[in-house]
Design a binder for these strands. Sequence first.
DNA 1: TGCGTCGAGTAATACGTATGACTCGTCGAT
DNA 2: ATCGACGAGTCATACGTATTACTCGACGCA
Lengths: 333, 333
Amino acid sequence: MPATSRPTSKDVAHEAGVSQSTVSLVLGGKWSGRVSPATARTVHEAAERLGYRPNPAARNLRLGTTRTVLLMVPTLTAPFFGPVYTGAVREAARHGFGVVAYVWPDDAGPADSPFAAPHEAIDGVLASSMEPATLAEFRGTPAVMLDSDPAGTAPTVAFGVADGMRAIVAHLAALGHRRVGHVAAAPDQWTFRARARALAAAVEALPGGALTRATAAIEVGSARDAAARLLTRPDPPTALVCDDDLLAAGAYKAARALGLDVPSELSVTGFDDVLLATALEPELTTVRLPAEELGAQGMTALLELLSGHRPVSRVLPGRLVVRGSTGPARPGR
Amino acid sequence: MPATSRPTSKDVAHEAGVSQSTVSLVLGGKWSGRVSPATARTVHEAAERLGYRPNPAARNLRLGTTRTVLLMVPTLTAPFFGPVYTGAVREAARHGFGVVAYVWPDDAGPADSPFAAPHEAIDGVLASSMEPATLAEFRGTPAVMLDSDPAGTAPTVAFGVADGMRAIVAHLAALGHRRVGHVAAAPDQWTFRARARALAAAVEALPGGALTRATAAIEVGSARDAAARLLTRPDPPTALVCDDDLLAAGAYKAARALGLDVPSELSVTGFDDVLLATALEPELTTVRLPAEELGAQGMTALLELLSGHRPVSRVLPGRLVVRGSTGPARPGR
DNA sequence: TGCGTCGAGTAATACGTATGACTCGTCGAT
DNA sequence: ATCGACGAGTCATACGTATTACTCGACGCA
């Protein structure tokens, strides 16, 4: 226990020789015409002297709001969430809200719920990349889903992953590719299911198009093995479409191990456009998802929800970024 | 505003036909011998029926504690913080504490302080990679610094970055390198100042050792340019020591642009051992920092602090991980 | 029968803040 | 001289919970 506990507004009042109400009035900034400037100054000085800061728990209780929103994500290791957080914070700040992040693994049970803990001292939740079933845990806490199925029951801001996949396939088709390999992430998130579906449909629609698929964990070694499986089949693909940028790094490794040059002998694409995409050599052709925009728009929707309106779900289009990892299909292969 | 506001313990009491005290007693789990099992069951059922969850603000006010800790970081984009968070959460959970993350840019002013907002509804702060000056903002909130100067005034858990640098230099020296280039990050964080100092000292101590340095922003393009500057000098270095893994990716690009093969013609080392290190080709020789351990030990220290003890600062050693980016110095160069 | 004890529950209160209702001089207008 | 209005504060209260002190009936025991 600390030597002395924190000063309260009552202490400040005593120090300044006024009542607690006056302190609250002054420090709340609503004293125009209620408190004389001289008294206000006295109060401010006393507060400063004591190092007073209001007790947030008491304030929250009194006001019935915390003006704080929780950004809930399944992991912090994915580089993807940094920009989402940034966008959310930017938008929240414009309305006087703060944001904290909480990691809730997608496979967590109700016992791990932040709602079993005091974290719940928040007004709403921005839940990114969560399965819709998770929603049940929110039990009345206003929530907006990010990067989830826009057809779900909750307001959602999602990426146009299907559009992105179609753009990739169109790009590859224009380069002459027909046999496409899919280095897929496990379909335990909506976004990966959507990506797989979109890719299948796009290749299907391509005259002469043929799709093969291998599934990997989101990890370089696993992706390398999956890519190697695809490349060592008879009649192997001339292009590998990977479900995200990290998987593409694995594809690079498989290609190198098999002596295939990227992009002259094998084209590789990623998805997301995280930092890694430009750190690789050659730089990765991928789809840029507007992650910061996702955070911002999600926050906008949540704030709408908090003010009693029902926001509409939105889809943010991705954009194909052509870099050095894709090239013309070699007729020979 | 929601249609109906959340049920309180009073509502539950009414529903169950008991007093509010009884509800609190039962739901608090402290009713052994004070409430009959039958009544307890009734209360639980009523709470379930109404979907009751205690108001955290009220509970926090009453108890004077939130059992929540804030992990404050300067950015979420660095892959480094995921493991730190994980370690902190693991340790906190063992003591019934929760963790939320808050991003406070290192260059933020007091106006941006989370302590100006309700986020402050927390018991303590784990401040990672912050300048000690930031500490002044905490104003009495118990804080432990992570990845900061262990000689500072606050309890600190830091990495043994000096040891790590020495290990790198010893490794390079054993391979015959003498002329070392330092691709340095801007010294605005303690850790980078410490790395630079340690590297300088280690090369200094090497017979015939020579150090050149170029500074870069923590970004691939900037690192590429800095590395290129070093490599195009007369009498260029045979090994590039980079302040972190991302900078090493930039060094790879410079080497490739100049037609230098890694590792046969140029050795490159990183620092941190983040995901990127094994995504690169060749895989990066680097120093693994026990980030998860940092989070866990930091949390342990903070919890000690919260229980009135004064924790001691600790330093966690890094470990050299030799991969494919370092090789014997070519006599020719 | 009288008394202490115990089981089962309730009443009352405090945590620290924000705010609507109230008080009490003083001053200007009639 | 009287009254209303206004400026400058203060009083009292509520937010929802956890907990201490209390009540009250039943029961065991001498």
